[in-house]
């Protein structure tokens, strides 16, 4: 349980820089902010983050399943 919680926290911490960077430009429109800014490089960043997040979430699910299995075999 503890391990799970700290992993989640780590993930949030890792995402923080990306989030703040996306909001740092001070444009009024959040879309310009997040997707259109500086040659649309932020779109690429978002896409890569989504993939990493998706794989991460899948890992959490697998982690839970394995933990359940461990508890049962004990």
């Amino acid at each position: 349980m503890m391990r799970n919680g700290s992993a989640r926290l780590l993930l949030l911490l890792a995402l923080l820089p990306a989030w703040t960077a996306a909001h740092a430009q001070g444009e009024p429109d959040w879309l310009v902010d997040t997707l259109y800014g500086s040659g649309k490089i932020n779109t690429v960043i978002t896409v890569v983050s989504v993939i990493l997040l998706g794989i991460g979430l899948w890992l959490f699910r697998l982690d839970r399943r394995i933990a359940r299995m461990e508890k049962r075999t004990k």
Binding site: K40, T46, V47, V50, I51, G54
Partner: peptide
């Protein structure tokens, strides 16, 4: 389905920007 969902979300974001 994991990859389908990732493909849908990333495609959606890309589509919004282009």
């Amino acid at each position: 389905l994991l990859f389908a969902i990732l493909g849908l979300i990333t495609g959606s974001i890309w589509a919004r920007a282009t």
